[in-house]
Design a protein around this nucleic acid. Structure first.
Lengths: 190, 190
DNA sequence: CAGTGAGTAGAGCGTTCGTTTTAGTGCGTG
DNA sequence: CACGCACTAAAACGAACGCTCTACTCACTG
């Protein structure tokens, strides 16, 4: 009983596995098994091989993460409270997953640096998308454009770094702390 | 003409390779070749195999990064200026390396999550060491203890996240921005 | 001078990797 | 019924993986 298509199951499984083990650490055969698909199906839907699967998986992770950010940002009126809500939601999701499901692109991005590859591009695209979400919230709260964009970049970067530390230390504290500090930073501009 | 011992060359080469390609992406044979050593030598000095080499390599990266932080922190008097100096130094080093030599532990940490392994412990140890360096600087500048420790954690996390984005986008801006925002955050406490 | 142990050198183990290949399904259209 | 197409299934490819093993050099000690 599968409610989603084979194609989608492959993308979702790949996204989760890459998020947890990185790009190099995740095998095509493991993706196929986890998605209840066969190797032939994977290469049928993704003739580009492992790299093509990864690009689609990262795009999926980008949207998943964007939805999470939107949920948190829309739940609060003030910009400082909204960013703090992001950090708190991230912390909760991370703990719920047993500290395994962090940022869906960091690991893949770091492993594929140096060469100009599609994977790195997909990661850069994801980071840009998330920054834009935060920037739009700040702009909607009356922040002037350059400050809003700069702050949004640091917000995403800080959450990113705090999430890594939270995963390594298995604690919500780094994320909750980041939320409070970012709140204060944003409030200092208002 | 090699000025360092085989043991040390293996550690240094492993540290650099893991920093650039992650733990899974770096092979024992590649480490040996890069260190001008043979496979036999690697297993002679590190009977624990790949994992033991990685733990030593991460400890080496921890100290290298700590030296860099110390240099930047000691060069400035005020805490806000000191943290900004860290960001600027990090940005310069990153650009000089061709955007390849970022944080020496992030990639390895993310790949080995979930299972309680020595590598993750080594990464947590490195993060703790760096946080302590920043915390001591803040304490020395008169910050009360709990605030200093909290701020130090966010400082390291933000630099970490900004460095990843800087690597992915091949730009110093995320790091320079992080330095300015962290400066402002610290100043807001003084 | 024989002996010992640290360190070097590399062949080769079994396994897994990403990928290719070939065969075979089910199914809607002519 | 036959044809083409989308999809599944699994065997097999060469290459690389981490690691073990044996053989060897060489400085030092009794």
């Amino acid at each position: 009983m599968q409610t989603s298509s084979t194609h989608d199951r492959i993308v979702v499984a790949a996204s989760r596995l890459i998020q947890r083990q990185g790009y190099v650490g995740t095998g095509i055969k493991q993706i196929a098994k986890e998605a209840d698909a066969t190797l032939g199906s994977v290469y049928h839907f993704f003739p580009g091989g492992k790299e093509a699967v990864a690009v689609a998986a990262i795009a999926h992770g980008r949207e998943e993460f964007a939805d999470l950010l939107r949920t948190a940002l829309d739940g609060e009126d003030g910009p400082a409270e909204a960013v703090d809500a992001c950090a708190r939601l991230l912390a909760r999701e991370l703990r719920t997953s047993g500290w395994t499901d962090g940022c869906p692109v960091t690991a893949a991005a770091l492993e594929t640096l140096g060469s100009d590859n599609p994977i790195q591009q997909a990661c850069a695209d994801a980071l840009r998308t998330w920054q834009n979400l935060v920037a739009e919230k700040l702009l909607g709260c009356g922040f002037p454009s350059p400050e809003a964009r700069d702050l949004a970049a640091t917000v995403i970067n800080t959450l990113e770094g705090a999430e890594v530390t939270a995963q390594v230390t298995r604690s919500e504290d780094p994320l909750l702390l980041a939320g409070r500090h970012l709140s204060r930073l944003i409030a200092s501009y208002a």
